[in-house]
Design a binder for these strands. Structure first.
Lengths: 340, 340
DNA sequence: CTGAAAGCGCTTACAG
DNA sequence: CTGAAAGCGCTTACAG
């Protein structure tokens, strides 16, 4: 079970450790004879380089850390995929850590990682981010994903949640909706806040003085269902709903159906994210597509850049604009309403 | 940017490196005075232990590697979640690597990982597994997930795909289906093969001598759609379809709808996996629930055990039985058919 | 081209 | 309780 070391290989090949190291690393001009002997010995002994030792002397780990919030589902999967693919191309390994209930856990995870990675990718959309910033290890290049924090790290990548929300509301209005409601995400979530801001701003512009109906959800289907029921029981129920993410929108769809109303004719619905599910619910859900995979790739590229240019403090910010995808849930003829 | 070392901390705290090491590791009885000084110095210097050095001397990395095939979606996400949660409890880090197109890539990934982990979790349901086995580093405890390979590793965890398939076919038969077809997964995929085996065996038992209709898919929604269309254009189209995974079943649902037929009355449908989407399509999809999160947890526990009992070669095998979940897509009154 | 030797940062018996 | 020292496995100038 115990692995063999370079010394064992060198001994078996009857060369010095230095020479063995050279052929293992494929460097230098080494005699073909030596190379062969070392390679043979290495494979016979099932030699695997001890990574800790190598990283100790090179002070490079060739590993990046990925810190995720407590995320569940497609989004998580996609972003890892994007990062992992990009990392493989750069020859980097990926250390992941998810599900951090509270700040203490997130800090501990970051701290534990920072000694073994060349850089850190941190996604932490909740409010504690400020405190997290205070706890940052300064010795490691860091790129934030979708974070509200401006000052920290060597780079940041985020989604234009505000712009996306504006587009959604404009779209609903263009399709004839006059009473547009909003189902919000968690109050402490930065991305949710930005979507709310986009909603409010656009509503104020399009329907000045009108009252805005919103309900809070927690990004789960269940909460979307509940919020939609609440909205439908208002005295003036909405004829269009922008929902802060697709998962909640799916719940909203259910609630509308249960109320015996039609989507999109009675209530048009638009979500956010474009998770795969969006295409499969009935009616298919209009939404804002975020290239999550691409986001992951770019985040990693940003980090690799930061690692390479060391402490040159040129900070890069990337903003990804979501794209409106119109499906059946909001596709309707512009109707003339009799009442106001 | 450059991190400080234990030596720096010791110097600042005016103690020996040994003492500094002790308080950092929280061991031994150390004077309260020393402890305080070291802790203060460490935080002032933003000291982070160099993990490579530590692992070099302890010959423990506190990291496990996870090797996944080219997987996309919920399944991937869930299994990582299960493993990550379990790993955190054990104080282990998780190195992940996905998307291995071919054997060479998978082998390279495994090799690259094996020098930096205490154990390996390998999921590789495709046929190359035999070759992969040959390439295994022997120095690292290894647990396979859903692998066809029997001989390798210190443990294995797998899904009872055969049993699940049997249950699905029996269920369809019990609900009145008389011509049950099967949409297969990729031919080289072990799990897909097992599901096919279960289908064939049960069909042979229930409808001896009857011809079996099957079509191959590749686990994507699109291929399920195509396979279903092909099945519907047969001279004797099926009145029940067992589909090798939920994603393809979703495609099948679409094809049936497009053909103007009703689910479940004209064709009952059952999938496999119970991905979240299954509940949201219309009609909701009957399927076999596999506790993927739980599977991940258990896989890690198995590995931790293997790591702890070192080379005692007591190999553990765990088989998880999927559970039949009946939803609308196969809920129908048993009908009497006029024709044969 | 090749080898002896120093050193990466840390832990851990071993003395005191 | 504390420190000096050896050693974990590897890479890399430095000589030869």
């Amino acid at each position: 079970m115990k692995g063999s070391t370079l010394r064992d290989v060198a001994r078996a090949a009857e060369v010095s450790i230095a020479s063995a190291s050279r052929v293992i690393n494929g460097i230098d001009s080494v005699t073909e004879d030596v190379r062969e002997r070392v390679l043979k010995a290495a494979s016979a002994l099932h030699y695997v380089p001890h990574w800790g030792a190598r990283s100790l002397v090179k002070s490079r780990t060739n590993t990046v850390g990925l810190l995720l919030p407590d995320i569940y589902g497609e989004f998580f999967s996609e972003i890892i995929r994007g990062i992992d693919d990009a990392a493989r191309i750069c020859g980097l390994h990926l250390l992941v850590s998810g599900s951090h209930g509270d700040l203490a856990e997130a800090t501990a995870a970051m701290y534990a990682m920072s000694g073994r990675v060349d850089g850190l990718l941190v996604m932490s959309p909740s409010a504690d981010s400020e405190d997290l910033a205070a706890a940052l290890p300064l010795s490691v290049p860091l790129v934030t994903i979708g974070s509200r924090i401006e000052g920290i790290g060597q780079g940041a990548i985020r989604i234009d949640n505000f712009g996306g929300a504006c587009a959604a509301v404009r779209h609903l209005a263009a399709t004839g909706c006059r009473r547009i409601a909003f189902i919000r995400g968690p109050a402490e979530n930065f991305e949710a806040q930005e979507r709310l801001r986009g909603f409010s701003a656009t509503m104020a512009e399009l329907f000045p003085g009108a009252e805005m109906q919103t309900r809070e959800g927690d990004f789960t289907e269940h909460s979307g269902y509940g919020a939609m029921r609440a909205l439908l029981s208002c005295t003036a129920p909405p004829d269009g709903v922008f929902v802060a993410n697709d998962m909640m929108a799916v719940g909203a769809l259910l609630a509308i159906k249960e109320a015996g109303l039609n989507v999109p004719d009675d209530v048009a619905v638009t979500g956010f994210d474009d998770i795969p599910l969006a295409r499969f619910v009935s009616p298919p859900l209009s939404t804002l597509r975020v290239g999550v995979y691409e986001l992951g790739r770019q985040a990693l590229d940003l980090l690799v850049n930061a690692i390479e240019r060391e402490n040159e403090s040129e900070k890069t910010d990337i903003v990804i604009s979501p794209e409106l995808v119109v499906r059946e849930s909001s596709k309707r003829e512009i109707r003339r309403t009799a009442e106001t």
